[in-house]
Write a protein that binds this DNA or RNA. Structure first.
Ligand code: MN
Ligand code: MN
Ligand code: ZN
Ligand code: ZN
Lengths: 126, 126
DNA sequence: AAATTTAATGCAACTTTGTTGCAAATACAA
DNA sequence: TTGTATTTGCAACAAAGTTGCATTAAATTT
């Protein structure tokens, strides 16, 4: 709803996502900016950036919240519904541009789908 | 590894899963048996039952832990890898006997997959 | 450029989920 | 029935996430 202000804290968080195209857990983000801003601020900035379609969130394998940059989203629609991959060795999380077909479900109305693949990433594979 | 003992608390938890074929969140289980046993005990019993292949666990949409009865599992292999459905209205969670094909992922070794469908359940649909 | 408005932040206190250590209780086998 | 290993309760703790409120700092207006 409210206009998002370009504060120092917002810029810092934004730059983290712009530099690397890799998902970040909230916990790691808080750690990254520790000393520079409060954890409450991190949570609130992430909320706002998600509402504005700049980042999207999902749950990792341990139930923790992760965020990653959006591709073609806006405040009014998050159009990047894709699966994620979490490495069980190094814990890295990637957005996948993979199309997964979900068979129709009788007597249910499916609105969204969370898919998390787990295993070894490219680095940990070799 | 230890043998699982048939205590009163274990029987109580088991009966909850045996009566209804519906997933239960840990939070709701603790609430259900409140007064009868300690929450630590609930957590530990669920751990043991999962290790023994009697129940399986997964994360709901809010990152909370859920459990449901297993179909043909044992202590040595959990063979019921299936998607789950969580109703966004009544919060009910169901195990789905649905086969979802995941396309191959280059340079990754995928060991497991968590799939959660969200929407309206049969009851909330009509 | 100053004043005003409104959003954003810091901080402390809190909630919720989940874990740990240890002493006491209980299941079960001998 | 006795001995032992497992299970339980309890209290204290840990980690993730939220809330209220006073203060600060953007963005607008004058
Ligand atoms: Mn993503
Ligand atoms: Mn299930
Ligand atoms: Zn890895
Ligand atoms: Zn429902």
């Amino acid at each position: 709803m409210g206009v998002i202000r370009k504060t120092k804290a917002v810029s810092t968080v934004l730059s983290i996502f712009e530099n690397k195209n890799e998902a970040k857990s909230v916990v790691s983000l808080i750690e990254l900016v520790k000393g520079e801003m409060n954890k409450t601020t991190v949570y609130r900035i992430l909320d706002r950036l998600e509402q504005d379609g700049i980042i999207h969130s999902f749950n990792g394998k341990d139930g923790l919240k992760w965020y990653a940059k959006c591709e073609g989203c806006s405040a009014h629609k998050h159009s990047d519904k894709h699966p994620h991959f979490q490495c069980t060795e190094c814990d890295k999380v990637e957005c996948l541009s993979l199309e997964v077909k979900i068979p129709a479900l009788k007597n249910h109305k499916v609105d969204s789908t969370d898919i998390l693949l787990m295993g070894q990433c490219e680095t940990c594979c070799s």
